[in-house]
């Protein structure tokens, strides 16, 4: 089974502090990491490989993809990686990334299964997976929380607002997953060492055969500001009895609790 997992490098929001005056994020000081749900996608791909043989290929694109992070994905158990790292992707949106990733996946080979996160940590676009499917002429299923292999194809379960939807799907297909599907493994030292020998193939953007229109973002980001709410931050101290008394009187005074 040929499994492609789309893995995105993003800023870690926990380390993305805003400038106190402008509230704009200070990117230079933030750390980068692999987008959360992509690790779930990768874990699921690796489990499929362990059960049904085949290989897992990590696919990533961005303006400055760090080999170190791609090594983390390889250390979890992927076999190799194909990466497009190009400054021109600085302002890429879902349209551009989907075009790049779909072409890259096709260049690597015909995948039976393409796994993605349901949304990325930075953009939260909920779109690259289904867009890639559309571009490749494949069906897609989003928000998958369980995958069972069947005689022909897969039985997948989706977690929806109205309940749990069960679908039977044929391969090839694109699936998107979130936190619920599994717990991504922590690579052992041995696996980390083994990963240093696995290939990271760097693919030039030009070689993908995309035209200008396919590389022109449709969405422009005008501004990004921290969502900060100033809180009073009053610490209520004292014995249990005193603290309870103080908290209650504050809440009553503010009209939040009626007695």
């Amino acid at each position: 089974m040929e499994i492609h997992v789309l893995v995105k490098q993003t800023y870690d929001p926990n380390t993305l502090e805003p400038n106190p005056k402008t509230l704009e994020p200070i990117y230079e000081r933030a750390q980068t990491k692999l987008s959360d749900f992509d690790l779930n996608a990768l874990e699921e791909g690796i489990r499929m490989k362990e059960n049904f043989k085949g290989r897992v290929v990590v696919i990533s694109a961005g303006p400055d993809v760090k080999p170190l992070l791609i090594r983390e994905a390889l250390a979890m158990g992927a076999d190799e990686a194909y990466v497009v790292s190009d400054k021109r992707l600085e302002h890429a949106d879902g349209w551009v990334y989907a075009n790049v990733l779909a072409s890259l996946s096709r260049t690597v080979g015909n995948a039976d299964l393409i796994l993605c996160g349901e949304c990325s940590v930075d953009e939260g676009g909920y779109q690259v997976g289904p867009r890639v499917a559309e571009k490749l002429g494949l069906p897609s299923v989003t928000h998958v929380i369980r995958i069972h292999a069947e005689q022909e194809g897969l039985r997948v379960e989706r977690d929806l607002e109205e309940g749990r939807e069960v679908l039977d799907v044929k391969l090839p297909i694109v699936l998107t997953v979130g936190l619920e599907i599994n717990t991504p493994r922590l690579p052992s030292l041995l696996m980390i060492r083994a990963a240093s020998k696995k290939p990271i193939n760097s693919v030039p953007l030009e070689s993908l055969g995309l035209d200008e229109n396919e590389l022109r973002p449709r969405v422009v980001c005008a501004s990004v500001r921290a969502l900060k709410v100033e809180r009073k931050r009053v610490v209520i101290s004292g014995s249990l009895d005193e603290a309870a008394e103080k908290l209650l009187s504050e809440l009553v005074r503010e009209g939040l609790v009626r007695i």
């Binding site: 800023y11 929001p13 993305l16 805003p18 994020p25 940590v121 930075d122 953009e123 939260g124 969405v219 422009v220 980001c221 005008a222 501004s223 990004v224 500001r225 921290a226 969502l227």
Partner: peptide
């Protein structure tokens, strides 16, 4: 965006 910590204006 950024895990709900920032708001972006997009066009």
């Amino acid at each position: 965006v950024y895990g709900g910590t920032y708001v972006a204006e997009q066009r």
